[in-house]
């Protein structure tokens, strides 16, 4: 691990300002992804700003009838919150499908959104990777790509986003609240928060330098049957090959987002509109631009079958 200096932030705005003063700084909250990457020297911050002392660990009702989830709310606490279990079950289920009990106790809401990809070539510093070292190439293209993206990828990167939580938040139309180094705050819709790789796969989110996530808000509950179905190589403690977050109303309308298939949680409102017509129609729309590799082409029928199972379950 590269050496770094360390400070404990006193307020969200002060944390963002400190990040602006140290161009090589990173915020650290749970640290479960960042420290893993620092040990491998994939992340090499010269300065860490510990935000754990900030009072961002509450889940509170919003004026609009939704919930504001503090950036530091641990995955365990968010999944176990009675309001989330009752009104946003897809989020609770997605969180519980991810990581291990130990990691969920440490991992935070904001940190989960900012997880880096689990692409093995991103992790292997002997391999080219445009995300780790811009311009060096992509070893996953033409390499072992069973886990990789089938939609929204580019010639520079075919990595997937590893989060389960973010897939549920995308289906729920969540929004990300932030503060910038100048103290200004803004709200970013989750749909615009994560980026597709394009020619700059190292730029993964809409956050500007030094910008700190302070909360994630959920709109007023919409009801419906909420399901998160994750298909993976082990029954527990593994990343998704494919996952489906679905909110299905009694009239057959709803929202569907996919995990494990793209550089970001994958949802198309045009595909939501196909929900009353069934899984085949929704999948055709969601994956209309799919460019799978020979190794991950299995994800196309897997999405349709998983979605089919979810919609059958939703009908009860």
């Amino acid at each position: 691990m590269k050496s770094f200096t360390y400070e404990r932030a006193q307020s969200p705005a002060a944390a963002a300002a400190a990040a602006a003063r140290h161009p090589d700084a990173k915020f650290i909250a749970g640290g479960t992804n960042l420290l893993d990457l620092m040990k491998l020297e994939i992340e090499t911050p010269a300065h860490l700003i510990d935000v754990n002392g900030l009072a961002l660990d509450k889940i509170e009702p919003t004026q609009e009838g939704g919930l504001r989830i503090g950036a530091l709310v641990r995955n365990t606490d968010l999944a176990a919150d009675a309001r989330v279990r009752r009104d946003y079950a897809v989020l609770s289920r997605a969180l519980l499908a991810g990581a291990s009990g130990q990691l969920r106790n440490k991992a935070t809401t904001a940190g989960n959104l900012l997880q880096r990809t689990r692409c093995p070539y991103f992790y292997d510093t002997n391999q080219p990777c445009n995300k780790r070292k811009p311009g060096s190439g992509c070893a996953a293209i033409g390499g072992f790509s069973r886990q990789h993206a089938i939609v929204g990828a580019s010639d520079a990167c075919i990595a997937t986003h590893p989060s389960d939580m973010a897939v549920a938040m995308r289906a729920l139309d969540a929004a990300v609240e932030t503060v910038r180094p100048n103290g200004a705050t803004r709200t970013i819709p989750i749909a615009e928060f994560h980026r597709l790789p394009g020619n700059t796969p190292h730029v993964e989110t809409a956050l500007s330098p030094g910008e700190l996530i302070t909360a994630v808000t959920l709109p007023k509950p919409t009801g419906g049957v909420q399901i998160y179905r994750k298909v993976r190589d082990r029954a527990s403690y593994a990343f998704a090959l494919v996952s489906v977050a679905a909110i299905v109303q009694r009239d057959g309308t709803g929202h569907v987002a996919l995990g494990g298939v793209a550089h970001k949680p994958w949802r198309l409102e045009s595909a939501d509109a196909q929900l009353p017509r069934g899984a085949k129609a929704v999948t055709a729309e969601l994956l209309s631009g799919a460019k799978p590799t020979r190794e991950n082409a299995f994800k196309l029928p897997l999405v349709e079958r998983t979605l089919g199972a979810v919609l059958t379950e939703a009908k009860g």
Binding site: T32, L35, D36, K39, Q102, L103
Partner: peptide, 28 residues
């Protein structure tokens, strides 16, 4: 040493965590 095996599990404030994936200075 990467949070994958659980051999380093300890309990902090009643909660289990992987002690390999947290810095000592974060536990004041």
């Amino acid at each position: 040493d990467h949070g994958q095996c659980g051999a380093c599990t300890v309990i902090i404030g009643g909660r289990r965590i992987n002690s390999c994936l947290t810095l000592a200075v974060m536990h004041e």
